[in-house]
Amino acid sequence: MTCLKQLALIGAGLLASSMSWAVGTAAGTNISNTATASYTLPGGTSTLTKSSTVSLVVLELIDVNVVSGNSSSVSTTAGATNQVLTYTVTNVGNGQEDFVLDVTQLTTDNFDTTNVRVYRDTNGNGVFDSGDTQLTAGSSSIGLLADASATIFVVSDVPGTGTTGDLSQLRLTASSETVDTRGGTPGSSISGAGSGGAPDAVVGNNYTSNATGTLELGTSSANVSINKTIVGTVDPFGGNTLVPGSVVTYNIAVVVTGTVNNLTISDPIPSQMDYVASSLTLDSTALTDSSSDTDAGSFNSSLGTSGTVSVNLGSPSSGSSYTIQLKAEIK
């Protein structure tokens, strides 16, 4: 291993998002043992004797663990691009090690995604974004200190056609680059390959590990949460009682947790109320009531008993959130 590469590894380890210093004795640690004995000779002379010191060097144990960061299938839609599956790769050995990442499409599922790419969550925010580094599946390796983890995103595109419930499974495999290069079976040692001052490395039972994530073609309803609350009431007397003439401000919080297309939020005004004209806002920006202009909002007075407010949010990405507010007056 070159000096330069080692430096890069240390840097990468420090940046790793979740890090815990666990039990394994670090590679290169010296374990020494010395016994002593005391005894008495005739005449009462007490003497102390020492054994020579026996030293053992703890070698590097190469082990890695990959888990899926998605507890269940990730909902997607036909034709969706940049669909993200999340994995965590942890160096569970006792020395710094490079791991090669590769992605395979399982053959037991319903469809394969295309344009499969692998990214490391370089900026450590847990979300796939432009700050992350693309890796070449099958050849790029990531360096991890002992017990350090890296979050990996497998990003791909979904074919344009498919049936609800169809699954695509992608498996991320992390393998020790040392074992890939030098060969070896669990329990065998690789001469000269130890890190942290250990002369050799020992191949662990888990020198390679994998986890599978699943994309599922689904409906979008489960991916949007809507929470409507009253945030203010102004009565005709300047107070906040609910009497005829009081104006109530409604807040509709929308959170998108999956990929959805053509998301429209509709809010029928209650029959005992009238919509206050031009009171609709989206993320504090006013929207007009007209349905014929380009903004997202509209009020259709002929839909429902007191009319209906609609806001078209289009095809927001997962993680988006919106705040819609509108006012209505008690009749």
């Binding site: 394994g24 016994a35 005391s38 008495t40 000779l41 054994s51 053992l56 703890v58 144990l61 662990g204």
Partner: peptide, 29 residues
Amino acid sequence: NIVPGDLVGYRIHYVNSGKETATDVVVNN
């Protein structure tokens, strides 16, 4: 090939190479 989790055994051999019996021998480790 010692790595974390491995078992290590230590055997301490004592020998009295003198001409007298040693008593109250205490080996400490």
